[in-house]
């Protein structure tokens, strides 16, 4: 990487090495290019935070579903068709006026793939992983959130096989919205816990 400045127009060394590995494995018939394409397509286009947003919107509009979601998240999420790798053991933690939840994986990058997709770079960054547990309020400030002192911050460190999804608070002025419209409001960051969901009228967070 030290010679990046001299060779900006040629592919990076690692891109070439990855290509070489792929060629060798394809030639050996250990992997199939179409299958690799399908994996990339799945995580670029099919599995992502829209899934989690649908779960949240359902929980906001259906109290019975919400109760099931909080009691057995894996099964309740499967009702909407989401499950599989890195979502086998889900727990949903609910924000409330005096409780704010924040999810991290200090040791690596554990993240609920079926509902949120693959984690963003910042979630895997040393800055986030190191500070989320010791300075969650400082981290939230970096995202523009300042929970008052009387709000309890709960940080969930995903050290084992359980994966966490935050159920954010439903914003004000959304009584008239349909479930699908509500899902449009729900962001990835609000389901990790570094954001709240903004009200569609005022733009203000709940």
């Amino acid at each position: 990487m030290a010679d990046d400045h001299e060779h900006q127009t040629v592919p990076s060394d690692i891109a070439l090495r990855v290509k070489a590995l792929e060629s060798v494995l394809v030639e050996k018939e250990m992997v199939d290019r179409a299958e690799l394409d399908a994996v990339v397509d799945t995580y670029e286009n099919r599995i992502g935070p829209r899934n989690g947003a649908r779960v949240v919107a359902r929980a906001w509009t259906d109290p019975v579903y919400k109760a099931r979601l909080l009691a057995n998240a894996t099964e309740a999420i499967a009702e909407l068709g989401y499950g599989g790798a890195q979502g086998e053991h889900m727990v949903v933690v609910e924000n409330a006026p005096k409780v704010h939840n924040l999810v991290v994986c200090t040791l690596c990058s554990c993240y609920p793939w079926p509902t949120l997709g693959l984690p963003p770079v910042w979630y895997k960054s040393a800055g986030y992983r190191s500070r989320a547990v010791i300075d969650p309020r400082g981290v939230l400030r970096e995202f523009g959130l300042e929970p008052p002192d009387d709000v309890e911050i709960r940080v969930w460190d995903s050290t084992a096989e359980i994966r966490y999804l935050v159920l954010p608070e439903r914003p004000a002025d959304t009584e008239h919205l349909t479930e699908a419209e509500l899902a449009e409001l729900v962001t990835r960051d609000s389901m990790i816990g570094v954001a709240t969901v903004a009200s569609p009228r005022t733009g203000d967070a709940a």
Binding site: T106, P120, A126, G127, Y128, R129, S130, R131, E142
Partner: peptide, 14 residues
Amino acid sequence: DMGGMHGLGPVGPE
């Protein structure tokens, strides 16, 4: 195993 360490930079959301 970086939970609690200082000096590892900002989070830097993109």
